[in-house]
Each structure stands twice: as C-alpha cells, then as structure tokens.
Simulated assay, not measured.
Amino acid sequence: MTDTPPPRRIVVLISGSGTNLQALIDAQDTPALPNAHIVLVLSNRKAAYGLTRAASARPPIPTAYLALAPYLKAHANATRADYDAAVAALVVGAQPDLVVLAGWMHVLSERFLDAVSPIAVINLHPALPGAFDGAHAIERTYAAFQRGEVRGGGAMVHRVVREVDRGEPLVVREVEIREGEAMEAFEERLHRTEWEIIVEGARKALDEVRPA
C-alpha cells in the first residue's frame, strides 16, 4: 500500500472579513485543492472576522494576530521592516509550503520576502495585470470605466515580489462592467470571481512546489 503524502501546508494572511479565506477553507482537501490544509491564519487587525472563520472551521484552524502599531509601541526603536520580520517569523514557524495573501492590507517589505524565502508567496489583487496596482483598485477601475478609459476590470492571483502587484500572474480573470451598473454590483461580481481564482491560484502554486 502506498503511503499517503503529508498534507500540503498553507498559511493565509488576512486583514478583514475573510471571504477569500472562506473560499480556501471550503476548498481545502477537496478536488479543487487536494491534499492541502490551512495551518495558520494570521491577521494584522484584531477584529478581523476572518479570525472567527478560521476558529469556526472544522477542525479549527490556528490563528495569530500581529498589528504594526502595537508592535512598534511594544518594541522601542523597532521599524516597519522589523515588524515585517516578526510577521515572517510567525509564518516560517508554521512550516508552510505556500503563503497566500488574501486581503492582507499591508505592503510587505524585502525583510519579509527575504525571511520567508524560498517559500512561495502569492497575492490576490482585484485588478488586471499592470492596470491598477496598490490600494482601492476596484474603485479606481470603476472610475476609469466611467471616464471611458477602460472597458472593464478583473482580478488576478500573482507571485509576490518587491514591486507592489507586479509579480508574475498565475491566474487572470476579466470581469465586465455593465453600462449603468452601480459600483457595488460590479464589486460583488468581482468578489465572486476572486473566490474562484484564489483557490485556482493556490492549487497552481502548490502543484509547482509539492504536487498532490
């Protein structure tokens, strides 16, 4: 009898409600994300509902919380890069095969990337490659559509590199903006696309480092 390989390990970083995290929770150890378990959910916001989602999963997923301002207050002379190193230490301690930034609202510095290397790190971003890097991408996409500058929007899962939202795309999905559509309606449809591609991107990245 062939021994079953140990589950592939995922760490997820969040800042908010965790709907993208929920998509990963629901997909773990299914045909969409086979032989994969989330081993840690880390938030930089104490009240992030994603922590509750993780704790309510079956079995419960371990969680951690580390925010920038309290960290700097507790560590005299510490810098933002020191905080990133502390985040990296928590991540590396969970021994993941993959790190997924799922709504993590903090730009990670080289200190983080150097500390977690060679672990793969991917990010979900609600815009097409090279279109609207950084924060508020959905609002900026919608505004550009209203000005006639773009025909629609989209979302992607990409590798995390030093340049914000400039890593190699793993999964890209276009999402149309309908004439007369409110931004909230576009945003809702885009989020549904995100729930699909974050799972697809996680599987693709995992299959590269540890095939199921």
Results as ranks from 00 to 15, higher is better:
Thr4Arg: 15
Pro5Asp: 04
Pro6Cys: 03
Leu13Phe: 09
Gly18Leu: 04
Thr19Gly: 04
Leu21Gly: 03
Gln22Asp: 10
Asp26His: 12
Pro31Val: 00
Pro31Arg: 02
Pro31Ile: 00
His37Phe: 05
Val39Trp: 11
Gly50Phe: 11
Leu51Tyr: 14
Thr52Trp: 04
Arg58Thr: 14
Pro60Met: 00
Ile61Gln: 02
Ala67Tyr: 13
Ala69Arg: 14
Ala69Cys: 00
Pro70Phe: 03
Ala81Leu: 02
Tyr83Ala: 02
Asp84Leu: 11
Val92Arg: 15
Gly93Lys: 03
Ala94Thr: 12
Pro96Cys: 00
Val100Trp: 03
Ala102Gly: 06
Gly103Thr: 03
Gly103Glu: 02
Trp104Val: 02
Ser109Ala: 01
Ile119Lys: 08
Ala120Trp: 08
Ala120Tyr: 05
Asn123Tyr: 03
Leu124Phe: 13
His125Gly: 10
His125Tyr: 02
Pro129Leu: 00
Gly130Ala: 00
Asp133Phe: 11
Asp133Ile: 03
Gly134Gln: 01
Ala137Asp: 04
Arg140Tyr: 06
Ala144Phe: 12
Ala144Tyr: 07
Val150Ile: 15
Met156Ile: 04
Val157Phe: 05
Glu163Met: 09
Glu163Asn: 06
Val171His: 10
Val175Asn: 00
Val175Asp: 00
Ile177Cys: 10
Glu181Ala: 12
Phe186Asn: 13
Phe186Gln: 14
Arg192Phe: 05
Ile197Arg: 13
Val199Lys: 12
Gly201Val: 11
Gly201Glu: 06
Ala205Thr: 09
Ala212Met: 01
Ala212Gly: 14
